[in-house]
Design a protein around this nucleic acid. Structure first.
Lengths: 223, 223
DNA sequence: CCCATAGCTTAAAGGAAACGTAAGCTTAAA
DNA sequence: TTTAAGCTTACGTTTCCTTTAAGCTATGGG
């Protein structure tokens, strides 16, 4: 499989590193730009950038200006990164050709989920239906089926189950789960995970037994 | 295989020595820094440091500040060392970019396990499945198989067996085992080991005979 | 062959981790 | 503003693991 290029544009070094880490781990080639000019230069120089992640709040040239400039030369998919409370401009954004929004702070799973969704839409990514232990996850429909029957899961439950299944057979510490499924600035009680696991097990019925407890260690999904 | 560099940052001499000894024994090249400034200087001077172990509680510049400073220039993997019950509110917002935590006191095995896990994730380490005397240890799945059949081991049993197999053919004194598998400040009865060995032998069946008693000395794992 | 020492076994106390329930809080919808 | 849903936290309960203690057995030197 070819290595897709993603460009992250943000003035904050930390944010770029964060996104770079997550997406590199997922097998993308990540390019970084610290401001709008750099972004446009880089976009023109590099061929076949598959997706751009664009921060709205930047000094000098803000995200909307960068967006407009890039839309003049390309219809590459663009995801805007906004801080909570900045969403008022969304309608304007969609008119200008924004494909998706991510609100900061976000979890690694959200990031990769949105990126996957976009690439799927533009036909550059693989299937989005996974199956394990009688559980089927359909990310496009955001739907879970157990033995054919649809099960209603909350948002977090869905994310958690998806993470388990993506890492089936691997023992996961609570710390690991917290870092990957929850927002990057979340610091909470690890017991929160226990509660969600409990709910998942209940909703999944017998298939829920696939989520094993590893005493003194964490959890593991096993078919 | 290349010799990976690990940097330990802690104001306590004892802790640095401890970590240095453990990791040197595991074939790492260990560098020490007694405070944040020294750490940053050293990190900039030395090329290709593969991993940083960073204590949180330090005078002058604390671990979080060091973390932020280093994250500005690099995305090197970082493991934070925290004391049990340390003020967790200050963690808010600083979590960004930490790969793993280790709570003091820890056992050498925990230390090397986390280090290995990180390096595995960043693709700089080898496989984590070992086999000896018909016993297979899979650290990723946190699973032990004897002649193909999965055997349920408790946390300590798992750690102990792993230590035996890593040191197969080597006679280990009880003191040695206590120092390596138990927390570094644990001072318990050596009979504790006997009990765990007994359970291991029972659970491993005939393969359990690979754990030999060396009278007046300790134990040895031999295929 | 006996004794001292080291190791083995068992059971039970104690502790730590996980579970279950419910209440509090936050966010989104009506 | 009210309502509802989901997320998080708190806490008592339960389960499981670790350690200790005590008696028993094996080993090897005298």
């Amino acid at each position: 499989m070819e290595e897709l290029k993603v460009l992250i544009v943000d003035d904050e070094e930390r944010m770029r590193k964060l996104v770079n880490d997550f997406l590199t781990a997922k097998g993308f080639k990540v390019l970084e730009a610290a401001d709008g000019e750099e972004a446009i230069d880089l976009f023109c120089a590099e061929k076949d950038i598959a997706l751009i992640l664009l921060d709205v709040m930047m000094p000098k040239m803000n995200g909307w200006e960068v967006l407009k400039a890039i839309r003049k030369i390309s219809k590459v998919p663009i995801i805007m990164l906004t801080a909570r409370g900045e969403e008022q401009d969304e309608l304007q954004g969609f008119k200008l050709g924004v494909d998706e929004y991510i609100t900061k702070p976000f979890s690694p799973k959200i990031l990769t989920a949105r990126v996957d969704a976009i690439l799927r839409r533009t036909g550059r990514s693989k299937s989005d239906v996974t199956e394990a232990a009688g559980i089927t996850i359909d990310k496009t429909a955001h739907e879970v089926r157990v033995d054919g029957k649809t099960v209603d899961l909350s948002y977090k439950e869905f994310e958690l189950l998806d993470y388990f299944i993506q890492n089936k057979g691997i023992a996961l510490s609570r710390e690991n789960i917290l870092n990957n499924v929850w927002d990057y600035d979340y610091f909470g009680d690890a017991r929160t995970i226990d509660t969600h696991v409990k709910k998942l097990r209940a909703k999944l019925g017998p298939s829920g037994e696939a989520i094993k407890t590893i005493w003194g260690m964490g959890y593991k999904f096993e078919a």
